Simulated scan of single mutants.
Amino acid sequence: MKRMFVNNAEMKKIILFFVIMGIYGIFVCGCGQFAQEANTGLPYSGDKETNEVTNPGSSDENKEAFDIEKKYEGKAVVLETVVDIFREPDINSERVTQAIFNQPVEVIEEKATWTKVKVVDGYVGWLRSKFIDRDCTSIMEEKYTDRAVITGKTKKVYSSAGGGVTLKDVVMGTELFIKGKKDRYYEVALPGGLTGWIDTKDTIKVPSGSLIPATSAQDFLATVGKFIGTPYLWGGVSSWEGVDCSGLVYICSRINGVDLPRDADMQFEFIKTGVGSMEELKVGDLLFFSSNNELKDISHVGVYAGEGKFVQAAKSKGMVVESDLNTEYYIKRLKGIKRIFE
């Protein structure tokens, strides 16, 4: 067999060839890793078999976030200051109640430009779909420590602390979750991922997930008194457009820590503490009236203001007024008296 000899020059070529091939192999095998890092911004952590990327977050955090999202499935948030809720998907049908800005609603059905919802006060009805947003971030109480409840008739939400552009007008009973505070302004979460600022005056701060604390009969009457002169509106719950008799009682009791049903007859049945006679009347007691002298129904409610006077949203007057209780008309129609504050 012929023996082959390799000179030094050829040996250097062979060694250089293997070095180049080695570098090429490293590059080819590693390109998946480099591509992964470039696309995700994260170190490559893929599995050799499946090439799946592991989740950088903890499983507990992911589960908590999933549970929160699950809780708000099928819900939406109100986008306008006050939104009418109709019995049918038609603006000419009966207004049964109203929903206010940033309130949650439970979505039941969608039909063309209308959505059937269940609102906070328990009523089911239809609203225009454009007035709600499925992004519920602004009402996810788990994300915030406290919320501000508006106790004044109206309040402006500004673009910055101390003023700026008015982003939204809100009404009594509106609840906004607090993100921060600067001087006498709260930074609050708004629908659509926005942030606004409200003056702390005429608000109460309540821990997220907690009920509004109960106040007193005097505070309740003072709240009712803010509505005197407000227009009467069937199904209304705010000073923005108007209130009806039970809407006045509903919203004023709510921000004073007592949740009542929306309608007068349901309020009468719900409240267990009754007052036996006119002589036992106290400020803040609720006066329930029938539509006739036979006293077979509950059709109206007012709030006793003392000295024989009561405050009511009177359809006949077209507004919220203070009236004289000691008249034949009201005495003959007085069905019962209930007390919600001692």
Results as ranks from 00 to 15, higher is better:
D146R: 14
V320D: 04
Y330L: 01
G308I: 05
G247D: 02
D263G: 08
S216I: 07
T115Y: 01
D263H: 14
V6M: 08
K153H: 06
L325E: 06
L127H: 00
A99E: 10
E10L: 15
D219V: 13
I340Y: 00
I198G: 11
S58H: 11
F101C: 00
T203S: 06
G25M: 03
G25V: 01
K153T: 11
V320E: 07
I68Q: 00
L79C: 05
K153I: 09
E280W: 08
G225Q: 14
V119I: 00
G30I: 02
E49T: 15
I150Q: 03
K116E: 05
P89V: 06
G173V: 02
S159N: 06
K201G: 12
S138W: 06
G122P: 07
F131H: 06
G163V: 06
N8C: 10
K179Y: 11
S323I: 04
D265E: 13
D263R: 13
I150E: 00
K338R: 10
D265M: 14
I178A: 03
M319G: 10
V321K: 03
G318Y: 04
E294S: 05
G152W: 04
K282F: 01
G209Y: 07
K13M: 02
A305Y: 04
G336Q: 04
P104I: 14
Q33L: 07
G162R: 11
L248R: 05
G306T: 00
K317I: 08
C136R: 11
L281E: 10
G192L: 03
S58A: 15
F86Q: 02
D60R: 10
G41C: 05
I23M: 11
K75P: 10
S246N: 01
G306N: 04
S160D: 15
